[in-house]
């Protein structure tokens, strides 16, 4: 069997992703009155991000059209793997995570 190359953007479940221009990015930050680091994040290594060629520091606009109220818009700030590692709690096992136990 030969491997077929699949473009994941063609899948109907993958919503539309676009990279915002500098002005558009600023507009969004202004509209919500936040700095870029308050936006939801997405990894540079995300399959869709790789395909559309967004780089760390970009803001991506995601438009989903399956919402009951028509289109819903979402923005994500692209980060690199290194930033992700910095954000991660250095040891998950140290977070005191009680078992459900007697509850």
């Amino acid at each position: 069997m030969t491997k077929k190359k699949i473009n994941i953007l063609d899948n109907e479940f993958v919503p539309e992703h676009t990279i915002l221009t500098e002005e558009e990015s600023n507009e969004i930050l202004q509209k919500f009155n936040v700095t870029f680091d308050r936006l939801p994040l997405i990894l540079e290594t995300d399959p869709v991000v790789k395909i559309i060629g967004a780089k760390s520091g970009d803001i991506i606009k995601i438009v989903r059209s399956d919402s009951p109220a028509g289109k819903s818009v979402f923005y994500r700030y692209v980060i690199g793997e290194d930033t992700k590692q910095g954000l991660e709690e250095d040891s998950v096992d140290e977070i005191i995570d009680e078992e459900p136990g007697e509850e």
């Binding site: 919500f32 308050r38 919402s67 009951p68 979402f74």
Partner: peptide, 19 residues
């Protein structure tokens, strides 16, 4: 928009549809 207490945006519109 839905935000946490350090002003991080969780959703840009409540429930993504505002309903």
């Amino acid at each position: 928009s839905v935000r946490d207490n350090s002003n991080n945006i969780i959703q840009f519109e409540y429930g993504e549809d505002g309903v």
